[in-house]
Computed example of a mutant assay.
Amino acid sequence: MKHHPYDHRWRERLHRQQMKRAQRMHRDWAWRWRARHRWHQRWHRHHAHFKHSLGARLIAVFAVLACASSVILWSSMGSAYGLLWAVPALLLVTGLAFAVIRHMVQPLHALALGAEAFSRGEFSHRVPVVHRDEIGDLAWRFNQMAADIQAMLDGKRALLLAISHELRSPLTRARLHAELVEEGESRDALLLELAQMRDLIAALLESERLGSGHSALQLSDCDLADLVREQAQSGVELHIDDDLPTLPLDRLRLQLCLRNLVQNALRHNDPSRGAVQVRLARDGRGVRLSVRDFGPGVPPEALPQLGQPFYRPDAARTRHEGGVGLGLCLCRLVAEAHGSRLELRNAEPGFEASLSLS
Results as ranks from 00 to 15, higher is better:
R9A: 11
R11M: 15
E12G: 05
H15D: 12
H15C: 07
H15I: 08
Q17I: 11
Q23Y: 14
R24H: 13
R27D: 09
W33Y: 10
R34P: 00
R38C: 09
R38W: 10
H47L: 13
A48G: 05
K51F: 11
L54K: 01
G55W: 12
R57S: 00
F62H: 10
L65K: 03
V71C: 09
I72S: 04
S75R: 15
A80Q: 12
G82H: 03
P88C: 05
P88M: 00
L90W: 00
V93Q: 03
I101R: 00
I101K: 01
A112H: 12
F118H: 12
R120M: 12
S124C: 08
R126Q: 13
V130P: 01
I135G: 05
W140C: 13
F142D: 02
M145C: 10
D148A: 10
A151Y: 07
L153Y: 03
K156N: 10
H165R: 15
L167S: 10
P170F: 00
L171A: 08
R175H: 09
R175E: 13
E179Y: 15
E179A: 13
V181L: 11
G184W: 01
S186E: 11
S186F: 09
D188G: 00
L191V: 05
L192N: 13
L192Q: 13
E193F: 08
L194I: 08
Q196V: 11
Q196Y: 15
A203I: 03
L204R: 06
E206R: 14
S207T: 12
S207L: 10
S212W: 11
G213R: 08
L217I: 09
L217T: 11
Q218Y: 07
S220C: 06
D223Q: 07
R229K: 11
V236A: 03
D242F: 08
R251K: 14
L252C: 04
L254D: 07
L258E: 04
L266P: 02
R267L: 12
S272P: 04
S272F: 07
S272M: 09
V276R: 02
R282S: 11
G284V: 03
L289K: 05
F294V: 04
F310L: 14
A315Y: 11
E321L: 15
G323N: 05
V324S: 09
G327K: 09
R332T: 03
R341P: 06
L342N: 06
N346L: 04
P349D: 04
S354V: 07
